[in-house]
Design a protein around this nucleic acid. Structure first.
Lengths: 337, 337
DNA sequence: CTCCTGGACTTAAAGGTTTTCGGAAACGTA
DNA sequence: TACGTTTCCGAAAACCTTTAAGTCCAGGAG
């Protein structure tokens, strides 16, 4: 360990100037002769001087730090958002203080207080699902932006994936591929994601003037459920020629069972998944056409808007972020391998 | 936004005492009459006073903050470590400053400087693989602990999973289940993880006086490779009665292809995976027996040792953390379903 | 009555940096 | 020489908290 950290006054005395001058030289301000600045910079380098961010923050009132609060244990969806945010922040000189509330409101309040006491410049709250969640707290002295899971207070700023639009896009893709008997297997109905994706399907089918093939099948977000639902669906609606699944896990299960039952994917049945979870979507046979929610991008956008809010220009409301359809082999047009 | 944050002097004047007395009352120190403390506490509550952690840190030299530096984009293995660390820290009053170096040494140095300038009390570096990585920097003024990926400098403190021991444990489990012709499919040989796991296999087989069934098959860490390797193995070594796979992805691919080729798992061939990545290990048919590296526990331990190091008691060296065999259906004894 | 003790509280310094303002030197002009 | 202007630099305040040292007073001992 280095003996003791150099302060600006060490730099100043080594360079033979006052503290004020050293500060000005270091911060690239005017009113310093070039030669003097040179000397100060050399002294700083020699002492490997690092300005104390605490002292600096104490004066400026800005810590260049934001809090990132995750409700659930940084699940499958929190990670990319977090990465995107960290990316946007890290590009500048921001730092991210990470807190995990473990889904506990008490702990969340505790973390908010801790972050505030550290004088963060802003807060990003990333939800565990797209269902609205309680606003983190009224009257916080810093701006707050919600990512993935929106706040239930419309005057807050939230960024969520456009599940309805993405589902419609997926179904329209199936229609464009010539499919007409489209079924839907998805997650539990208490998830807003399930309801939104079903709504997108409904809209797309209505616009095409087609009925849905069979009832929507709801169950857990698991591969096991996908297999089980496949059995049911193939029995009840043997004519089905496409399935829109609410997640890649479900889609992977469906594909597996369909194969076993002798249905060819995509020749007999086209399949679309959701999430673009690559360990599943690229490893099934055939690889899955699926919806990518662009979560990293969403996280970046949330972070950028937090910057804007810190600078005073907030944009309240729930912002729906576009998703993207990743087309792979599970939806090739019939007859084409 | 609240108008202006209350400072301790606001509290003091509202309570009608000096700043020093307010500080003592708030921090639960002696030399304050009970009635006075009462008044101060009431005033603090009324103003919802939050002590400024910056000012506090400036004095004490302790920020109660640690930096968490991930080399790769917080991959599959970084997350649990991160969670465990955050858990251990959050139990107290520590906060975690998250930085992602994106595998870039320059960016890493940049982040280290930024963290140092924020006066973190310590650093945790989590690697992207178990291969040793360059020490983050010599002569840092704060202690550093490496998690998952060890430092190449033995005088640093590192915590890594005991891959050799875990692989031996997995193979011994297969032996205990009566398997005698054990094959090995694993990842690229330039991963230390691959080499360690193969070494564990070798030791267990040597101790049992048995040869390995066929050569070790090395390829990508993917399900696809697992399927491909299965084809090769079943062709070359049709008698094989157990396979130890270097990852759950490989194991999932193996199981799938073995099924298709008419081999029953576990009756004909027992399979052990590695990582306990639940989306795979619990969703294959049958569910996979697999090695869990206890990464959350590893992260917690690393964090606790960082505390110790901050308090002056470091424990240099590479510490191998025990893994755990999670036994599921893919290794039931032959004859038992 | 004086002296001492100890409790309760206040004053002031310290921690590292930024910033405002004033001062001094150098130089040009009348 | 006197004066104004420009250029460069330094003193000191401010940010908020903690803490060592000091003040004041009441009460007990001698």
């Amino acid at each position: 360990m280095a003996s003791k950290r150099a302060t600006i006054s060490d730099v100043a005395s080594l360079a033979g100037v006052s503290i004020a001058t050293a500060s000005k030289a270091l911060n690239g301000r005017q009113d310093v002769r070039a030669a003097t600045r040179e000397r100060v910079l050399a002294a700083a380098a020699e002492l490997s001087f690092q300005p104390n961010a605490l002292a600096r923050g104490l004066i400026s009132g800005q810590t260049r730090t934001v809090g990132l609060l995750t409700s659930d244990s940084v699940g499958r969806f929190g990670i990319p958002v977090l990465l995107g945010a960290e990316d946007a922040f890290g590009a500048g000189e921001m730092a991210v203080l990470l807190c995990d509330a473990r889904g506990d409101a008490i702990r969340e309040q505790h973390h908010v207080r801790a972050l505030l006491s550290r004088r963060v410049d802003g807060l990003i709250v990333v939800g565990e699902s797209t269902s609205p969640r309680p606003s983190v707290s009224k009257d916080l002295p810093v701006p707050v932006v919600y990512a993935y899971g929106p706040s239930d207070d419309p005057s807050d700023v939230s960024f969520v994936p456009d599940d309805v639009g993405a589902a419609a896009m997926a179904v329209n893709h199936l229609l464009a591929m010539g499919r007409r008997r489209i079924a839907h297997i998805t997650g539990p109905t208490h998830y807003k994601a399930s309801r939104d994706r079903e709504e997108g399907l409904r809209q797309a089918l209505a616009q095409a003037g087609l009925p849905q093939s069979g009832q929507t099948l709801s169950g857990p977000w698991s591969q096991r459920w996908g297999r089980h639902a496949a059995e049911m669906l193939l029995m009840a609606e043997p004519e089905v020629d496409a399935v829109f699944c609410g997640s890649d896990q479900i889609a992977a299960g469906f594909v597996e069972t369909a194969r076993e039952r002798g249905r060819r994917v995509p020749e007999d049945i086209a399949v679309v998944g959701y999430d673009n979870w690559e360990v599943l979507s690229t490893e099934t046979r055939p690889a899955l056409t699926t919806v990518d929610m662009n979560l990293e991008q969403l996280g970046r956008t949330a972070a950028q808007h937090l910057f804007a809010a810190i600078d005073g220009k907030a944009t309240p409301g729930v912002h729906k972020m576009p998703c993207q359809l990743v087309i792979r082999d599970s939806t090739s047009p019939p007859g084409v391998s």
